[in-house]
Amino acid sequence: MDKLSNLIKNRKIAKSYNGVFLALIGLIILFSFLSPHFLQTNNLLTILAQVSIIAILAYGMTFVLMIGEIDLSVGSIVALCGIVLGVMLSSGQSAFVSIVIVLVVGALAGLLNGMISAKFRIPTFIVTVATMGIFRGIGYAITDARPIQIDNPFILYLGNGKIFDLIPVPVVIVLLLLIIAHVVLSKTKFGRQAKIVGGNRVAAEYVGINIKRLQMKIFMITGLAAAVSSILLSARLYSAQPNVAVGYELDAIAATVLGGTSLSGGYGTVIGTFIGALIMGVINNGMNLIGMPYFYQQIVKGLIIIIAVYIDVRNKERLLAK
C-alpha cells in the first residue's frame, strides 16, 4: 500500500503538467460556454498560430529557467533579428540565406548574454536587462526607427501560409520544435546536465559538468528560439520594426512557469511549457471573443502570473518537505 501511494506520488512529480493540462481543459470548457465561436476548428487553429511566437520563446526560456537563470532580452533579440531579416531581404538576399543569417545573429546574441555572465560573473538577470536595451537599440540604429517592408513570398508563407488550406504553417513549426526541444531537454545528456545544474550547482561541478559552457549553450538556445520567433512575427506583420515584441520575455516566462518549470531551477518540461503557452493563448482569445476590454485583460494576465508563481512555490515546498 505504501509503495503504491508513493508510486502515484512519483508519477505526479514526473508529470507535473497534469494539473496545468486540467486547467487548460477547464478554460476551454468555460469559454466554449461563454462564446459560441470559441470551439470552432478555425478559432482553435488561430489560437495555436497566435501562441506560436510566445511558445517558441518559452521553449528556450524553459532551458534557461531549468538552470536557475533568466533571460529578459529575448523580446529585444526578436526585434533585432527581425530587422536583420528585413535588411537581408531588402538587400536582395534569398530567403534561405536570410534565414540562416538571422539564426546566426540570434544565436550570437544569446551567446553574448551567456558569455558576459560567465566571464564577468554578472548575474544573468542584470546582463539581460542590459542587453535588452542594447539589442533593441541596435535595431533602432540600423533602421533609423523606420519599419522595413517584408514581401518575400516564402517568409510570408512561413508566418501566414496554410497547409491543405487548413493548418497554419506556424502551428506545424511550433509542434515540430516542441518535439525537438522536448527530446533535447529530457532525452539528451545536455538536457540532463541542465537539470542537474539547476538542482545543485556544486554537485554538478563536482561531477565534472562545465557549468559555464553549458550556460553559454543554453543562452544560445534562447537566442535561436528568438530568431525563429522573429521570422514568424515579421511575416505576420509583413514588416520588420525595432519596436515589436516588447514584453514578450515576460509572456514567455509566464508560460514557462505556468507549465510547471521552477523559477529557481531543477525541474520543468517543455510539454508543460507548451500547455502553459496554450493557456495564455486561450485566455487571450476567449477574453477577446467575449469582448472584454483590453485593460481588464491586462489585469487578468497579471493575476494568472501570480497564480502560476504561487503554484511553483507551493510545488517546491511540497517537493522539499520531509
Binding site: R192, N200, V202, G208, G266
Partner: peptide
C-alpha cells in the same frame, strides 16, 4: 550541498557522473 540533487530522482542522482555511458 555537494553530492546530491535533492529535487531529482534516485536514478538521476546515481547516473549523473557517468551520463556518457548511457548514450
Amino acid at each position: 550541498h555537494e553530492g546530491l540533487v535533492l529535487t531529482a530522482g534516485v536514478y538521476e542522482n546515481i547516473t549523473m557522473a557517468n551520463l556518457s555511458s548511457l548514450l
